[in-house]
């Protein structure tokens, strides 16, 4: 009998998958060949070792860790639709802001606007809103930039701001200390 065939017979024997004839064949082979007999012993030893492995235990806080992961996943899940909407909205807005002027300049949009005048009014409104938003954003950035530049370049202004911050933080600290003293006095005077 070939080694491969004998190996298969041994494997099936370990899983109780042999019929009576096959079991007899296996016994004969083991009895007749010293090599097969050694292989069978070795296989049984390995099988025994694998079967008698002890169970290992996970960390004591395993369940808590799994539930923490689930919690984090649920939180992510809550944000996903909003993030998707934000990303999708940004992509659409970008496409519209790039495509609309191009379509107007190339004249591709004119036939559509002629057929649906409401679309033209709507487009004009959107462009106006976009224009206002751009203006406000630019204004905000410019004011912040000018303010920072002024503070950094003018030592007097910087001194005034730092002084104001010191005075404000001192005043807050004193107020909190006064509150704490008052509450301590109240708790000690209570019988």
């Amino acid at each position: 009998m070939a080694q491969d065939q004998f190996d298969l017979l041994m494997s099936l024997a370990l899983d109780d998958q042999l019929d009576a004839d096959e079991q007899a064949l296996l016994r004969t082979q083991i009895a007749e060949s010293a090599e097969f007999s050694r292989a069978w012993d070795r296989m049984q030893t390995i099988d025994g070792m694998l079967s008698n492995q002890r169970e290992v235990a996970p960390a004591v806080d395993f369940t808590a860790q799994v539930m923490a992961r689930i919690e984090a996943y649920e939180e992510r899940l809550q944000w996903t639709p909003w993030l998707s909407a934000l990303i999708g909205g940004t992509i659409v807005a970008t496409l519209v802001s790039f495509l609309t002027p191009w379509l107007l300049l190339t004249g591709l949009l004119q036939p559509v606007l002629a057929r649906v005048p409401v679309l033209g009014v709507l487009l004009a409104q959107v462009m106006q809103i976009f224009d206002t938003a751009t203006f406000l954003a630019t204004l905000f950035v410019r004011v912040v930039t000018n303010w920072v530049t002024f503070i950094v370049t003018d030592p007097t202004a910087l001194g005034v701001i730092v002084g104001a911050l010191v005075v404000a933080s001192t005043w807050i600290g004193l107020r909190e200390a006064y509150k704490l003293t008052a509450s301590l006095e109240a708790s000690t005077s209570t019988p």
């Binding site: 190996d7 298969l8 494997s11 899983d15 292989a39 070795r42 030893t45 390995i46």
Partner: peptide
């Protein structure tokens, strides 16, 4: 599965026979 278990056992026996896992030799 039958085939995988057969091949796995064959490989394990071969490893044991060839001494591929030194820590197993004294046990075997």
């Amino acid at each position: 599965i039958k085939s995988r278990l057969f091949r796995a056992r064959q490989m394990l026996a071969e490893q044991a026979r060839m001494g591929g896992v030194p820590s197993l030799i004294p046990i075997l």
